[in-house]
Design a protein around this nucleic acid. Sequence first.
DNA 1: GGTTCTAGATTGAACGCTCATTCTATGTTA
DNA 2: TAACATAGAATGAGCGTTCAATCTAGAACC
Lengths: 204, 204
Amino acid sequence: MSAEHRNPSEQHRAEARREQILCAAATCFRNHGFHGASIAQISKAAGMSAGHIYHYFDNKEAIIAAIVERDLEYLLTLSARLRAAQDTREAMIEHVTEGVRKSLEPHEAGLKLEVVAEAARNPQVAEIVREADSVCRASLAATLRAIRRADGHHDDEGAIDTMVELLAAMFEGLMIRGIRNPQLDRAAVARRFQATVRQLLTQP
Amino acid sequence: MSAEHRNPSEQHRAEARREQILCAAATCFRNHGFHGASIAQISKAAGMSAGHIYHYFDNKEAIIAAIVERDLEYLLTLSARLRAAQDTREAMIEHVTEGVRKSLEPHEAGLKLEVVAEAARNPQVAEIVREADSVCRASLAATLRAIRRADGHHDDEGAIDTMVELLAAMFEGLMIRGIRNPQLDRAAVARRFQATVRQLLTQP
DNA sequence: GGTTCTAGATTGAACGCTCATTCTATGTTA
DNA sequence: TAACATAGAATGAGCGTTCAATCTAGAACC
């Protein structure tokens, strides 16, 4: 059956297979790291033979790249959702609590840190990560700009960009905090973060 | 020659050899990750045979543990230095610029992120990391408490601990920012961080 | 409707290589 | 000579990857 004659259900099946591999790979990467996880482990977790994985991915690097892309895709949809609440400053401050919870989720944080660590040494992964980060920054900057303007503040581009970096550092740093100090008081941190974000948004 | 008869120069030599291995390992781990770096690579970088490394370390895990400990030892001396400036709030705010610079240093950040990512999955590494983090938090909390009291503020323990978490998240998050967005405006970020820390220290 | 054909899905063994680790032999030095 | 330092080959396991062989399910034809 040639490619152009594939029916929808077959395409769907293939896509499901790919997703199945990516889910298994994400679990393995979380538990053993990108280089610590083997194709044999991934294939076992995905419920298929090792060889069959190579029908869907060229090599292990391609799986890593796909995981990174999938991981960041979620980040992009989140940033889009954030922009939908662009009309109210308070909606953003409300969102802080959920952001703190998400950053502290060890399941999320583990894989994300693995991705960043890999980006620090793998140029191919670094490029994917930086491209996605750039889009997220732009989205967050637009949101901040709207909020600040609505309150009558006049910030130059650089000031907005720097606010974005502070916000990003806070929440990304929280992923590290959750690992280094699992006993931290989540509710108290959420309140403190909320207060800091409010100060940032309302400062002169 | 038995252990109790070793003369100082021999002890020094052995220590130097260990250090030599750790330096080489740090470089390899930075470039390839804990699991991506091989004993063969490390031995080549250290200028000795692969087998000889096993005279100084039981196995690769022990090298990782030693690297983690060495990495965190530096953090502890830094936190001690920070406490020496405990008498003035402004000294701490001054220190922010250096802290930002350090966090953005890709050499430092790469290995530290590798360590945290490993801590997220390796309980042995996690224990070392959490023990060191606990000491650092205590030190930073003492510094904050002193500054706040000197200014006549009365915070409970939890409030101080949460301030510590915010500060830690900001600077640790900056390590991720430096990788995700290498083009960020370092000077502007340093100023913004300084303002945020000042607000944190002087708030009612 | 039943048979044959066919092409993709899937397997599992095999390949060559590299890994962490061990072992043996030799160098060095006090 | 005794005790450690060091090198380098040996070991067996496991790695990523390939590939020939099988399975499966629908298309084509009678």
